[in-house]
Design a protein around this nucleic acid. Sequence first.
DNA 1: AACAATTTCAACCGCGGTATA
DNA 2: TTATACCGCGGTTGAAATTGT
Length: 253
Amino acid sequence: MVRAPCCEKMGLKKGPWTCEEDQILISYIQKHGHSNWRALPKQAGLLRCGKSCRLRWINYLRPDIKRGNFTNEEEETIIKLHEILGNRWSAIAAKLPRRTDNEIKNVWHSHLKKRLLKTDKLVSKNKVRLSKPKIKRSDSNSSTITQSDPDTSTCTTSRHNIKIEEIESLDTMPEIDESFWSEEAAMDDETYTTMVPSKSLTNSNELSLQCSFNNYEESFQQSNGYISNLDDGMDFWYDIFIKSGDSIELPQF
DNA sequence: AACAATTTCAACCGCGGTATA
DNA sequence: TTATACCGCGGTTGAAATTGT
């Protein structure tokens, strides 16, 4: 099958929209809606293809669009959602009211990606590979977290101080102190402080883990009994299965 | 002030999914 | 079932704006 071009190029305008064209499009859509983008430009008297009209409306003219700089909160949200959803800009835009997928895509490519690349380079200098956690099915020892009480807030092992606390999935990532990224900020095993099972291990459907060092946190979530990092990076990826009542041995940092 | 390099972002292109004849 | 048309999405482009020298 040979697809027909989206519009006959003959006589149709391309490139930036004029104020006059914008006004024609806005007033037409206000009166008649946009049930058929292909027919719209002809009916509205615009020398544009339907695709161009749709894009102009969706990305620029829609009355419910929020324009201007993205807030820090919005940028953090985009970064987190991108970790989960990848380049699914429309899905990300659906979580950010009044922002368009095109705008989010642009801000990702122009700001956020560069920022993260910079961050990754610095993190890779101090890269740490986490070993796979061991699961204890029955007995336990001093280096193993055991589930004694679902409501326990802290416990201690011989190797690390461990605390058990509630973690909301996709919780806030704390501000990272500038010193963390400095050349001098050498990684130190002792700065790893917690591997945190939340909500106890008694309910395998509600388990999540959080690993933190300095002020940087890695979040893990359980899905279908498996735990995996929310990050795509293989360096922090786990594939472990935990059943109700299991205990978990801390990873070696 | 002039020019070059870089960044931003609106708009375009092509593909895949879906509806329809 | 197949061919066609349309819509929406993600990748890419390129002009305009900004920044650096």
